[in-house]
Amino acid sequence: MIIGQYIPGHSWLHSLDARAKTLFILGFIPVVFLADNVWTNLFLLAFTLFAVKLSQLSWRYLWNGLRMILFLIVFTLILQLLFNRDGTLLFELGPIAIYSEGIRMGLIVSLRFFYLVMLTTLVTLTTTPMELTDSIEAGLRPFERIRVPAHEIALMLSISLRFLPTLADETDRIMKAQQARGVDLMSGPWKSRLKGVIPLLIPLFISAFKRAEDLATAMEARGYRGGEGRTRLREMEWQMRDTAVLLIFVALTLILFGLRGIG
């Protein structure tokens, strides 16, 4: 699990202001739904691969870290194939029927999911947790007028994101420990597998609560009392390249609108 980790580097993506990257991702979430044909998906796929190139991160590292996400992408594709009944019937075997629209929508939805996961992962890999927290807090700061705790919400989101790889490692350790004690999680009927998950979930929840308690104790011991009156060691600085990111997003949106009318 690499989502939530930070890889130090000197790439163009690393040098961007965290606020620019956060704004780009928030805007990209609705824009990705403009990809509904071959040309828009080819364009977004090329854009995503180009963003990976700009990050200067290893392709092997990204693939190894996102292999578990591949299961969700394939699962989404299978759901569309089995339950989408629009278009021309291409294959039928008993209750299983595959239609042309099911294949088309399955590929489109799976690719959209891939774009979102890949670009969101690039943001977390090229942005330190502190910078990410500051960018989220900066976005929520206008809502402080209506008593929204911007700093606390940003801190919770950042901690949650940071603990994703930690919990994934903890899950892997617990699985290996349970398998060493004879618990079979990989074979047998579904009922047996579900029963085998219980010895996995209970220690995982206990470990998560223990980590949360230790973190709260450590923050209190260091004098943390919320965001009021706190200062920052490093102030964020908006530069021309950050403005260029927003202009790239506008151009991306316009190109997708144009490509939607093709074919």
Rank of each mutant, 00 (worst) to 15 (best):
Y224M: 08
G27R: 04
A46I: 14
T166W: 10
A168G: 09
P129Q: 09
V52S: 05
A138D: 06
I103G: 13
T76I: 06
D184G: 02
R234S: 05
A251R: 00
W238L: 13
A208C: 10
M130N: 14
T76G: 03
R222A: 01
A97Q: 14
L140F: 08
T128A: 14
F205W: 04
V197Y: 14
S110H: 05
G258V: 07
F91T: 09
D134Q: 15
V38M: 11
P95R: 09
K176P: 09
L90I: 08
Y224A: 08
S15V: 00
Q80Y: 07
N84A: 03
F91E: 10
F75L: 09
F249V: 04
W63R: 05
D169R: 13
L90H: 05
R181S: 13
F163H: 14
E228L: 07
I146Q: 01
Y6M: 06
T127N: 02
L42Q: 11
I153Y: 03
E137N: 07
T231H: 01
N41P: 03
N41Q: 09
G227N: 06
S110P: 05
D172L: 10
L44S: 00
Q179P: 05
F91N: 09
E228R: 13
M175P: 03
L254W: 12
L132W: 08
E220T: 11
R232H: 12
L185I: 12
F47D: 04
A177H: 04
G102P: 11
L246N: 06
L132Q: 10
S11I: 08
W39I: 09
V250G: 09
R232V: 10
I108R: 00
G4H: 04
K176W: 12
N41E: 03
E220Y: 02
A216N: 09
L194I: 15
L155F: 12
A244I: 13
Q56T: 13
T40M: 01
F257D: 00
R104M: 07
L119S: 08
F205Y: 02
L215H: 05
E137V: 01
Q80A: 09
I146T: 06
S160V: 15
E213P: 02
R234A: 06
L204T: 02
L200E: 00
G102N: 07
I206F: 13
L122K: 11
A251H: 05
A138E: 01
T243A: 13
L34K: 02
F24G: 01
A216F: 03
F113M: 15
R112D: 04
S58V: 00
Q178H: 00
T121Y: 10
L66P: 06
R241G: 04
F33A: 02
E170N: 13
A97K: 12
D17Y: 09
A20S: 14
W39Q: 13
P8R: 12
R162Q: 15
K210P: 02
R193F: 12
R260I: 00
L42N: 11
Q5M: 12
L34M: 11
L90C: 06
A18M: 12
R85S: 14
S15D: 12
S55V: 05
P30V: 08
L44M: 14
L254F: 13
M118S: 15
V250I: 15
I136N: 07
L233Q: 06
S110Y: 04
M219P: 08
S58A: 03
I25A: 05
L125M: 01
E101T: 10
P129S: 12
I69Q: 12
T124Q: 05
L111F: 07
M186P: 04
I108N: 01
F43Q: 00
L116Y: 03
Q5I: 04
L82K: 03
F257R: 01
D172G: 06
Q56H: 14
